[in-house]
Structures are given as structure tokens and as C-alpha cells.
């Protein structure tokens, strides 16, 4: 068992510079937060006196709500700034936008943006902590943390990530969830198999050791301990990335039948929002193998642990 270590990051921009033991420590804090979320009165004073601001330049009600809940359960003040492109389309630079919001004196910003790297840019211009809530195709670290946490809790007989296999199916190219999960699972010693049409699986992702591509679903699922289906967006058809939903469903839909090839205890995950019967068979999503509901439930405690870890101990 790994020793719990102090988490000494000011920001959570992506998982690349987080060590395996820091992630394990964060998950232990998450265990404690799970207990809080199981209480009748879900409120602790741990972040009293801190102010957290959500800066969503790209809309996402569920992620924002999950973070907001995580902050409020810990008694933090929460400010919401839905940029939604409005002020930026008027020609305000990113830096000026931040300067305006900085006047509100938040201790931490939760940032979502369509462009990769924006949380990095912002972190250079403010003293506040930054949590990346999804930037372009790059990273969605809290999603990967909650996916990994879900596997840790829900995989029957869990004994660590080493030797486990995660299969991610779908539009990996545009997926920050996939990139963050690749980073997390390979760091912890698991293997990641990427599956989907060749147009959506960039070869360069094999630069991560422990990652391989596989273009046939039945091979990709063989022996997998966890299978994650990614949301398939219709817009991708216009870009010439795949021909039709029918063809996609026929070859890449994760089904109950297909799951028979996986490890007997294999779990099925989906980062949501789900297109039922497109990337995942509806029956499978409701089956015992599915941990999709648990993923959603783990969102808040994981984000509570992230906020706690970044805010407490930074001193004033």
C-alpha cells in the first residue's frame, strides 16, 4: 500500500506532472469525501473563507454543477462566470477577461475552454489556482480521476492498476477524456487500447508507452478490464471522419454481446452525455456491468478532493 503523500500542486492543469502516489492520495481524500456525501446533511466547513469561480468559456452545465456542488458542500463561496464566447467575441483578449474577473479575488478558477492550453495561459496571468475542467482536445483531468476512482471502487477484486487493460472506443482524436485517461491509466501501470475508425485514432497517441491502437472492436475488447465508450458526435460526419452513424454503430457500438469477450468482471464506462444505442447499446448501459451512474456519483467527491488539495495548505 502506498503511503499518503502531500499534494503540492497549485494547479490541476492536466495529469502529466502528477505522480502515481499523489493520485492515490487524492483518491484517499476522495474516500473521506464520499463519506460526507453519504450523510444526511452534506456540508462541511473545510473551505469556509475560500472563493471559487467557475469560468466556463464553453458551456457544460453538468460539469459546472458538479464542481459547484463540490465547492458548496465544503462551504466555499462560488461565483459563476459563463463566458460562453460573449465578451470574447467582442474582441476582449483572454488576458483582459481574466483581469476583470481577478478583481473578484477568487482563490481558484475552474476553467473550461474550447482551445487546448487556455488553463495554462490563464495560470501565467493570475495568482489564483486553476483547475482545468476541460480544454479543447487536451485534458479533462477531473473526469479521468473520477473514471479511475470508479474503476478502483467498482472493479470486483480490485488489486491495483498494474496489468489491467482499459479499452477506449470511439472518437479518440477529439477527446480530452481519452487523453486524460491515457495519461492516468498508463501512469498507474495499466495498458490502454484505443479502438475506432482509423480517421479518429491518431497514430501519434502510441507515443505513450502502454498505448496501442486496434481497429477491430472484437480484438480491442478481448480481455479488457474496463471498456469506455466515447460520445460520437454527428458533426464529425461533415469533416469526412466517418461516413454514417449506421456504419459506425455496426462496427464500433459497445454491446452486451461484445462484452462477453472482455474480462468476466469487466466494467463499462461512459463519460456522458451518452447517445444511447449509438456508441453504446442501451441495454448494456443499464446492465450490471455498467458503472455509468457511479461515475456521475463520484464526480462530486473527486472534485471535492481536488479543491481541498489545491486550496488547503497553500497559505495566505
Amino acid at each position: 500500500m502506498m503511503e499518503a503523500v502531500q499534494i503540492r500542486h497549485r494547479h490541476l492543469l492536466d495529469l502529466e506532472d502528477w505522480s502515481a502516489s499523489e493520485i492515490e492520495s487524492l483518491w484517499r481524500t476522495t474516500d473521506a469525501m464520499m463519506e460526507v456525501m453519504q450523510r444526511k446533511v452534506k456540508k462541511v466547513p473545510s473551505l469556509q473563507g475560500f472563493t471559487v469561480a467557475t469560468l466556463f468559456f464553453e458551456n457544460s452545465t453538468r460539469t459546472r454543477l458538479s464542481f459547484e456542488r463540490a465547492a458548496k458542500v465544503q462551504s466555499a463561496e462560488v461565483l459563476n462566470f459563463a463566458a460562453g464566447g460573449s465578451s470574447l467575441s467582442k474582441g476582449e483578449s483572454l488576458k483582459d477577461t481574466l483581469r476583470t474577473i481577478d478583481a473578484m479575488q477568487a482563490d481558484l478558477y475552474i476553467v473550461r475552454h474550447v482551445a487546448a492550453g487556455t488553463p495554462y495561459q490563464l495560470s501565467r496571468w493570475t495568482d489564483a489556482s486553476i483547475v482545468n475542467a476541460g480544454d479543447g482536445r487536451r485534458a479533462h483531468p477531473t473526469q479521468a480521476l473520477l473514471d479511475g476512482y470508479t474503476f478502483r471502487r467498482c472493479f470486483e477484486g480490485f488489486d491495483g492498476f498494474r496489468g489491467k487493460r482499459l479499452t477506449i472506443v470511439g472518437d479518440v482524436m477529439h477527446s480530452r477524456v481519452a487523453r486524460s485517461n491515457i495519461s492516468l491509466w498508463t501512469k498507474l501501470g495499466a495498458e490502454v487500447v484505443l479502438c475506432g475508425p482509423r480517421t479518429l485514432l491518431p497514430a501519434e497517441l502510441e507515443q505513450y508507452s502502454g498505448v496501442r491502437r486496434c481497429f477491430r472492436l472484437e480484438e480491442a475488447i478481448e480481455g479488457a478490464h474496463a471498456v469506455m465508450a466515447l460520445r460520437m458526435q454527428r458533426e464529425r460526419m461533415q469533416g469526412g471522419l466517418f461516413p454514417s452513424l449506421a456504419e459506425y454503430q455496426a462496427r464500433y457500438q459497445v454491446t452486451t454481446k461484445m462484452m462477453e469477450r472482455a474480462h468476466p468482471h469487466a466494467i463499462v464506462m461512459h463519460p456522458g452525455p451518452m447517445n444511447r444505442d449509438v456508441e453504446i447499446e442501451g441495454v448494456l448501459a443499464d446492465s450490471e456491468r455498467s458503472v455509468i451512474e457511479e461515475q456521475v456519483a463520484h464526480g462530486v467527491p473527486v472534485r471535492m478532493a481536488v479543491l481541498y488539495s489545491l486550496l488547503v495548505g497553500r497559505g495566505r
Binding site: 463519506e35 466547513p45 473545510s46
Partner: peptide, 23 residues
Amino acid sequence: LDITLYRDDLTEIGVQPIVRRTE
């Protein structure tokens, strides 16, 4: 009982107390 989340010095301290599970 873990009282970390209830400490009155969390906004000031420079180290981060490890939170344990309350059971």
C-alpha cells in the same frame, strides 16, 4: 472521527493535513 475538514485554520496553514475517512 476525522476532524480535518472542521479545523479552524485551513485558510491559513502552509501544510496540507491529510483527510481520513470518518466511520
